[in-house]
Design a binder for these strands. Sequence first.
DNA 1: GTCTATAATTAGATAGAC
DNA 2: GTCTATCTAATTATAGAC
Lengths: 209, 209
Amino acid sequence: MPADLTVTTNIDSLKKVHSRSKRDQIVQAAIKVFLENGYKATSMNRVAQEAGVIKATIYSHFKDKEQLFIAIIEELTVKKIDLNYEDLDPIMALSPDQFIDLISSKFSVLMNDPQYHRLFRLMVGESERFPELATIYVKTVILRGMDLATQYFDHHPELRIEDSAAMAHICAGSFVSLMAWQQVLGGNKLRPLEASRVKNMLRALICER
Amino acid sequence: MPADLTVTTNIDSLKKVHSRSKRDQIVQAAIKVFLENGYKATSMNRVAQEAGVIKATIYSHFKDKEQLFIAIIEELTVKKIDLNYEDLDPIMALSPDQFIDLISSKFSVLMNDPQYHRLFRLMVGESERFPELATIYVKTVILRGMDLATQYFDHHPELRIEDSAAMAHICAGSFVSLMAWQQVLGGNKLRPLEASRVKNMLRALICER
DNA sequence: GTCTATAATTAGATAGAC
DNA sequence: GTCTATCTAATTATAGAC
């Protein structure tokens, strides 16, 4: 094995590392480990191993474990899930049928995304230890979706919805709680309930009045 | 200080302890500490301190931390929350208005019980580490409530509910998810939504068709 | 069953060389 | 910024006296 080639490679990788990516490596590894194990059960050693760096490197990027955790939660909410509806008009123009289909399909994605189930476990599980993070989640994810649905019902007086915000909550809450007890808590193995049945029931409640 | 008196007292307390209560002391202390801190962040030292016993005593009653955790979850679900509706007839005889009031009042208790919020955090947060416990929770708590509501809608064809189970889920899920994002995640500080608004909206959806 | 004492491991975090 | 090596504190769990 040629020794100088090995040395060159090592120098190369060391140089490249400085460019930018080490921090991203750490964040991506931390996302994986925190989502799998929760806050307390995640060790900095495990994150370092997963990121392919040494533990001290993490501490040169993040003050402590708590700051690293805050960083990955913001990455997962503000930067990723954050729902930005710039163009509201096409959504407001949907028929009630189409609108129910839209939010149903949005939630179907979450229903089938194990990583989102883990984020849900993490947010709920750590909401007492990190109330500020729960607040970020409520603002960037929950209220955005709620606002959209509320506006839709406001724009459709022909549906005779007495309380748009309450109706928005019932729609969103029905899907979220379905994901919670079916996927997160494993109820689908005991008594499966299809999202389509919830969708059709909601449609009937809203449209057939 | 009279030495023999002290000895007598020690013997007394030792004898009394055998009677029964030490295990209960441990379980009650463990419930408090686990609910406050979650599984991983709970130390056996802390439980022992809270129970007023020494750590080794816990290990003489429970094989390890995991078995203690399983014991307290069963205490909190099977033995406590377990909903036993022996007499279904009076419930089935309720008017839709009264029935909505009933389940709304049931959930209002949970909405205002911080200990239940902590149990919710714990169940969801640890549902990947302890899927069997999540299953117990689904069986003893969720499915019981769901079955009751499903039966009610089955007994009331005049409501023209096409899918009783889906409707039961929408009712229960609306209240549970309300508790989740308002109380557990702290959304009530950002945008309060009263349970009564959800109740009234549900009533309108069910009754005014 | 209960306590004292301790073993064995692992955690978060840092000092210092480069 | 990165790595080697290490410190300190806390953890789960147990052995042995009573």
